[in-house]
Nucleic acid binder design. Structure first.
Lengths: 245, 245
DNA sequence: TCAATAGTGTCTTTGAGACACTATCGC
DNA sequence: GCGATAGTGTCTCAAAGACACTATTGA
């Protein structure tokens, strides 16, 4: 702002909403909480809460993320969180004037969520079951304008996988290239060609760093993949484009 | 938001700040207003103002844009405006707790700005003179956190020229390809190769639509360029990458 | 005829897309 | 050996980069 003083200007409540994503059982999934109070009691919503007086929005978002999932901010790769955009329609909350700064967060397969203080429950939902496709959603309709926020968040992530190394945020170290490829498969909905995927990942300097060891046998047979750690590269150029559709 | 009621939660003021860009005399330029009141009286700042009770942030941004520049929202290409991000550091305004939803706007060469009600003046500044380079800024230091907002806005625009047809928002119809190329040159700071630029623009379906007429002679001699209108395409794929640097 | 600008053509190189092939594991 | 998974090689084609060349104007 720059022009006037705020005298006569009404107060707003400011909140953060979080779209927290992970890959669970190969499915691109988002955390929702069941609302315990009106409005929308019994509906599912993105987790969130009020920004406190001493906080900026990002700090509030980290606090909420920790409260809901236990993820800590410490170090690089204690999860990743970034601002998405701000939603400010005057009627988006029937109780009062609320402006919400939405954020997007990711982490490798997370523990079962804790229930928030006044949320009746919390669970992961497959994103595909929530988004409206030709048939409409298989999951619940979301409270407030959270369906719109979720759509925007999903599109942001799909786009950022193309030109950043964001996919690394969805795997725990050490990881295999097939695991990393399954992140792209889950988020984009179709598998990138195996050979081309490897060429791109291994050809991008410092995207992944090989270790000397191979994964230990899992259940199904098959050759054991080499393990990698995350590299320091942040961007992929030229981008790895998703297939059309 | 989703969890609690706002009882006990302190009020925020919500504002919009605008980074309004145009190309003036071949220079990528941004509109600043001179502050008439404390804090930062006499400093330059991005134009902006409070969000009114009945408005969402985007509506408030359009209103401010109109007040400052006269640009109307009507129709396609009465200018372009989009949300950038939200700035919410607790101490960003010494007077009170203010959250600002920053927006970016563009238009073809605009008339001289009107002074806002309580802004002492308003003028265009070349972006290059404001951004800190090796030598520090040649222009004024900006009020509040507006230098950070401006940096983010400039980077957003530079990036979006690569994969969208946003450059069209900087030219008035009808326009020539050399004019359009000068937009890229001004924003990126270096000229894309002429032949490659034409190949990309003309090869992208519906990026530009040719007319039957050529420009009328200007001052300097030289062949007269064909005139075009904006096409309906919104994205460029694969992107037109800026040169390294 | 010259300077200035608009516009075309083309050679080379990079890298994506597609897909066949080889390697290593458990059984 | 077979099924399953990991990993390699290679042919083709689209498109960017670089840059030389031609075209049209005013003076």
């Amino acid at each position: 702002m720059s022009t006037d003083d705020s005298r006569g200007h009404p107060p707003f409540a400011v909140t953060v909403d979080l779209a927290v994503f992970t890959i669970r059982d190969g499915a691109f999934s988002v955390l929702l909480v069941e609302r315990g109070v009106e409005p929308y009691a019994g509906s599912w919503a993105l987790p969130g809460g009020f920004v406190e007086p001493h906080e900026d929005a990002e700090t509030a978002a980290w606090r909420e993320l920790h409260e809901e999932t236990g993820v800590e901010r410490f170090g690089r790769h204690g999860g990743h969180l970034e601002q998405l955009r701000t939603y400010s329609a005057p009627d988006r909350d029937p109780r009062m004037r609320v402006v919400s700064v939405a954020h997007v967060a990711f982490a490798p397969d997370l523990p079962e969520p804790r229930a928030g203080s006044d949320a009746a429950g919390a669970r992961w939902w497959a994103v595909d079951d929530l988004l409206v496709r030709s048939t409409g959603p298989d999951g619940p309709r979301l409270a407030f304008d959270h369906a719109e926020i979720l759509r925007d968040a999903v599109e942001r992530i799909r786009a950022k996988l193309e030109y950043t190394t964001l996919a690394l945020e969805f795997v725990a170290e050490p990881f295999t290239l097939p695991e990393l490829r399954r992140v792209y498969t889950a988020v984009w909905g179709s598998a990138p060609d195996l050979g081309n995927f490897r060429r791109k990942v291994l050809g991008t300097e410092d995207f992944v760093v090989p270790t000397q060891t191979h994964e230990t046998p899992s259940e199904a047979g098959g050759r054991r993949a080499l393990l990698y750690r995350r590299g320091a590269a942040a961007s992929i150029s030229p981008p790895m484009l998703r297939a059309i559709g």
